[in-house]
Each structure stands twice: as structure tokens, then as C-alpha cells.
């Protein structure tokens, strides 16, 4: 069932409530609230038109081009968020997000869903959005944890290498902790799904008229893809980061003053 534009506008009436709360408590956020919601409406409107166009065309190159836009935006977002070793992060992020894309997406569309044609943007783009968005967030967290584990404990690192540890052995504790920290919340989400919240994709499908029994199957596949994608991204990102972070004598390089 579609929503009429006039009806949609009426949903905005609800925003009067937070605005009243803000003005009663004199919280100086009313301007920000208005700007945020206008931005949201404009952004979604544009994205809606673009996706509508891409979905109608069903063109392989157009779909790939849009996926490139998505991954570029993801890399850019993480680059802006992380405040350390920025000169080595670009290749790290491109490599890790790309390897996730190339491993997960073909499996999902060629082996699991098998839409026709196989590159149907209706399937590829929303699923890719979920995998990419989660990978992007988790990878930022994993790299941040890894770097801070290292720099909080250089003495441990140096002690290992002066006793004969190789590069991999010397960073292993930091590597392990970083992956644990970044993957743990993912696993908690997986375990709690359905009970508390219905995930976005499933909500969308059910509202769009799909049967809940179909929607949960997609949801299961999505959860598996997201978790695997996140694991691949975090792992390859840290691997690549190690190669750029240390020189051939296992000594840290690119020290930021």
C-alpha cells in the first residue's frame, strides 16, 4: 500500500511533540532538528529517484557503477572518522571492502538467490548496502582498537620482537583483541534478532506486502552475509594495516609526531 504525499506530510505533524519538549526545556536543538529532517527528506528523495531509475533499467554496468558509488562513500566515511595513520588507511580500506564485496556478493546472487538476470539491482543493491554499511562501521572499530592496543603497549611489542617473535607473532594479541571487540557486538545482534526488534530489511519487506515467512528467510541470509562480510573486512583490513604499519625489520614506521 502506497502512502499519499499529503498523508506523509501529516506524519511530520508528530515532530511538533519533540519541538514542544525542546522549547519547554530551552534545549537549543530545534534548528538542528529542522535541518536534520529536511536533509533526510531531500537525501531520501534523491536516492529514491536514483534507485527507481536504476531498478527500471536493469543494466549490469549501471548497477556496478552504483555499487562503486556506494563503496567510495563507505571508504570516504571511514577515512573521515579515523584520526590516526591516515596516510596508510586508503589502500587498507579499499582492499578490505573490495575483498568482502568480491567474496560475498557473487555467492549471494549466483549461488543463493539466483534472480534473473543475476545482476538484478533490486536484489544486489539493498543487500550490498547492508553488508557494506556493517562492514564499514565494524572495520573502523577494529582498526581503531588494533592501533590503540598496539600503542598502549609498545613495550610488550618490542619485548616480543627482541626475543625472536616474527611480525605476526608480535601483533597477535592486539590482532586477536581487536577482532574480538569488533565482532562481539555483531554476534550479540545476531542472537537477539526478532525478539526485540524487527530488522529494517524485514520490516520493509513485510510493509511492502511480503509474507513474514519469506521475509525471515531473507533476513537469515542477510545476517549470515553481514557477519561473514564484517569478519572478512576486519581481518583483511588489519592484515593490510600491519603490512603498511611496520617496516621490514618489524619496526613501526610512519610515526605521527
Amino acid at each position: 500500500m502506497d502512502i499519499q504525499l499529503s498523508a506523509l506530510a501529516l506524519s511530520a505533524v508528530l515532530l511538533l511533540i519533540p519541538i514542544l519538549i525542546f522549547s519547554e526545556l530551552k534545549i537549543p536543538l530545534i534548528r538542528t532538528l529542522l535541518i536534520s529532517f529536511v536533509r533526510m527528506a531531500v537525501q531520501l528523495a534523491i536516492i529514491g529517484l536514483v534507485l527507481q531509475f536504476i531498478f527500471q533499467q536493469v543494466n549490469l554496468w549501471l548497477t556496478l557503477a552504483w555499487m562503486t558509488v556506494m563503496i567510495t562513500a563507505a571508504v570516504w566515511t571511514v577515512l573521515n572518522r579515523l584520526k590516526f595513520q591516515r596516510n596508510i588507511l586508503l589502500p587498507v580500506l579499499v582492499f578490505s571492502l573490495l575483498s568482502t564485496t568480491l567474496l560475498i556478493m557473487p555467492w549471494i546472487v549466483i549461488v543463493v538467490i539466483k534472480p534473473s538476470p543475476v545482476y538484478s539491482p533490486t536484489f544486489l543493491i539493498p543487500i550490498y548496502g547492508m553488508v557494506l554499511g556493517n562492514s564499514m562501521n565494524s572495520c573502523a572499530l577494529a582498526l581503531e582498537r588494533f592501533e590503540s592496543n598496539l600503542s598502549d603497549n609498545w613495550k610488550a611489542y618490542y619485548t616480543r620482537i627482541i626475543m625472536g617473535a616474527n611480525q605476526q607473532e608480535a601483533v597477535l594479541p592486539a590482532f586477536r583483541k581487536a577482532l574480538q571487540t569488533s565482532l562481539m557486538p555483531q554476534l550479540l545482534t545476531v542472537a537477539s534478532i526478532g525478539v526485540v526488534s524487527l530488522p529494517g530489511m524485514m520490516t520493509g519487506q513485510i510493509l511492502g506486502g511480503a509474507s513474514p515467512l519469506v521475509a525471515i528467510k531473507y533476513q537469515m541470509m542477510i545476517m549470515i552475509s553481514i557477519f561473514t562480510g564484517v569478519s572478512i573486512t576486519d581481518y583483511t583490513a588489519i592484515r593490510m594495516y600491519i603490512r603498511k604499519r611496520f617496516n621490514q625489520y618489524y619496526l613501526p614506521q610512519n610515526k605521527e609526531k
Binding site: 613495550k155 619485548t159 620482537i161 627482541i162 626475543m163 625472536g164 616474527n166 625489520y249 618489524y250
Partner: peptide, 16 residues
């Protein structure tokens, strides 16, 4: 480096 440092081993001022 790991080969060399397994034969030439070091102990630091404050051990970790």
C-alpha cells in the same frame, strides 16, 4: 629479523 633476534637476544631496562 626473527632469525637474527632469536640468536642475538635482548633484555630491556624495565622488563615487560
Amino acid at each position: 629479523p626473527d632469525e637474527l633476534r632469536s640468536r642475538i637476544m635482548e633484555v630491556m631496562q624495565e622488563p615487560w
